[in-house]
């Protein structure tokens, strides 16, 4: 565990908390893409298949349970909670998530560390995580007014990815044999997807204006 990895995990945790605050306290999920949330639930379900079989640390198991629990409960709230679901921008959130799931699955069948069920699922979860933010970014671009919590949610997710890249550089330099091409390339692609959002986020922050993405 290094400072980049820990900050990355904490930023990731913070992003989930921001979303839960929005849903629990404000009882609104306006501007949040259900498609992205469903993809994240699938990402965690397929990546953490080993949660009960290979123990790494209490920290690791706890975080996995938090990410699994939070992603599924967010999906449940957006789909079934009688107040929250009314604020869901269903007509705007039209990204077809199956178009992301299928190519990622085929890629995982071709590119994996070992051709076993667990390893293929693990590779699939990494490829899917890399593109899971796309429905959310599309929704943000369509939404006229992006509220602060939604903007912060996406910003924190992007920051988490950027910190993970620093973590990999640190681990590569300090740990012998730390080479994980699948993780690195999909992680890099994922971070690049945030570049455009980051640009407009910092612009609005610098000029003290409301975040607005150009169409």
């Amino acid at each position: 565990m290094n400072i980049f990895r820990l900050s990355g995990d904490m930023t990731h945790l913070a992003s989930v908390l921001v979303l839960l605050v929005k849903i629990h306290t404000i009882k609104s999920c306006a501007g949040v893409s259900l498609k992205t949330q469903e993809l994240y639930a699938l990402v965690f379900a397929t990546r953490y298949l080993d949660i009960f079989t290979s123990y790494i640390s209490l920290y690791n198991t706890t975080m996995k349970l938090i990410f699994l629990g939070s992603s599924f409960s967010i999906v449940w709230y957006m789909r079934h909670h009688k107040i929250v679901r009314r604020s869901y921008d269903k007509d705007q959130d039209t990204f077809r998530h199956y178009f992301l799931i299928l190519p990622c699955f085929l890629l995982a069948l071709l590119l994996n560390e070992k051709f076993t069920f667990k390893e293929v699922m693990w590779a699939f979860s990494l490829y899917l995580e890399a593109v899971a933010i796309l429905p959310q970014l599309v929704l943000l671009q369509r939404t006229r007014n992006i509220d602060n919590l939604t903007g912060q949610y996406v910003f924190l997710l992007g920051a988490y990815r950027a910190l993970y890249i620093l973590n990999w550089i640190y681990r590569y330099l300090t740990e012998p044999h730390f080479v994980h091409w699948i993780t690195w390339i999909s992680g890099l692609v994922q971070t690049l997807l945030y570049a455009d959002f980051f640009y407009y986020y910092f612009q609005s922050w610098k000029n003290n204006q409301k975040l607005h993405l150009p169409a």
């Binding site: 080993d50 290979s54 790494i56 975080m63 044999h177 080479v179 993780t183």
Partner: peptide, 10 residues
């Protein structure tokens, strides 16, 4: 080079 180590990242 693939290391058969448990995946310790989230």
């Amino acid at each position: 080079c693939y290391q058969d180590t448990p995946k310790d990242e989230l």
